[in-house]
Design a protein around this nucleic acid. Sequence first.
DNA 1: CAGTTTTATGCCTCCATGTGCATAAAATGT
DNA 2: ACATTTTATGCACATGGAGGCATAAAACTG
Lengths: 167, 167
Amino acid sequence: MTKTQRQHRINELIEREVISTAAQIVGRLNAEGIAATQATVTRDLQELGTVKIRDEHGTRRIVVGGASLSSPAPLDHLRRMMGEWVVSVESSVNLVVVRTPPGCAHVVASALDRSVLEGVLGSVAGDDTILVIASEARGGERLAHEFRALAGIDESVITSMKGTSHG
Amino acid sequence: MTKTQRQHRINELIEREVISTAAQIVGRLNAEGIAATQATVTRDLQELGTVKIRDEHGTRRIVVGGASLSSPAPLDHLRRMMGEWVVSVESSVNLVVVRTPPGCAHVVASALDRSVLEGVLGSVAGDDTILVIASEARGGERLAHEFRALAGIDESVITSMKGTSHG
DNA sequence: CAGTTTTATGCCTCCATGTGCATAAAATGT
DNA sequence: ACATTTTATGCACATGGAGGCATAAAACTG
C-alpha cells in the first residue's frame, strides 16, 4: 500500500460516505488491512485538500475541497508533478513550452489545469510537450519563470543547456 | 538538476550527436554545469535502454534502443509508473480496468503501450481509468494479476478493498 | 468556562534512492 | 595474447520522504 493508494482510498471514502473525523477513517482503513494512524490520515487530508463542513442536519463532515476553494492541494500536486517530470521550460511572448519525458505531458497538464494559476489562459498537451497560453499579452516569460520555480529548475543551468542543446 | 532531467538531456545528446562513450557524455554534462560521474551515466544509459552499435563507418555509437529491441527499459518504466500511480486493478473476462489518480491514466497507458507486454491487445485511457483489452478470450484475470505484481499491490488487501468500496 | 474530543505538528526513526569511489569485468585495439 | 580503454558493479554514504509517538493547539460540548 503506497501513500498514493491510501490517499486515493481516503478520497473515495469521504466522497461516498459521511465521514466526520480522521479517527473514523483510521478505523476504516485498519479494517481493510491498511495500517495508518491519525497523524498520517490528518496529513493525508491536508494534502488531499479536504475541508470540514457542517451539512444541512448540522452534522460534521469531511469533504473533498474543489478547485473553487483554491485550496493549496492542487498547487502541491502541480509542484510534485513539475518537480518530477518537467525537463525544460521556455517561453516566447505569450506562450510557454514545457517539455517532459515522452508520454508525461498529460499528467503535468492535468495538474496544471487543476491548480487554477492566475495568468494561464489554457493549455494543450501532446505526448511530451505542453503549450501554455498566458492570459497577458507578454506574460510568457513571467509564467515560465514561475514554472521553473515550481519545477525546481535552476535558471542559470537551463540557460547554458539551451545554448548547447540547440547548437 | 533532477535524475529525470539529466537522463532526458543524455537522451537528447545521443539522439542528436554521435556519442561513443559514457565518458564523452560526462564531459558534455559537466561542461553544461551538470555534475555526474561515469558510474552515474552508465546507470542512466542502462535505465534509458540505450544500445551500443557500430555505424556504417565502423564507429562506435550509443543510441536509444527502440521498443523493437524489447529491452528491459520500457518494462522498468512501466513498473515505476504502475508502482507509483496505480490505485487498483480489477478484471472481467477479457478486460482489465486500471484505476489511477485523476489525470494520471495517460502516463501509465503510455508506459503500458511502450512495453510490449504479451497478452495485451490494446488499451484506452481516460482521465483516471485505463481499459486494457486482453488478447486471449479470458485473459483478463491473468493480466490483472501481472499488473498487480508490477504495481506491487498485495492481492489480499485489494480483495478486501473491493468488498467495502462497493458496499 | 471547564472538560473532552479532534486536529495539527515537532521530533525521531526507518527505509528507499541516488550517487561517488574503487575496482572488477568486458570490450577493444595493436 | 597483451595492453588499454570502456563499462559495470559492490560498497559506503548522504539525502529526503514517510510515518509513528507524544503533545500542543484548536474545536466542540455541556
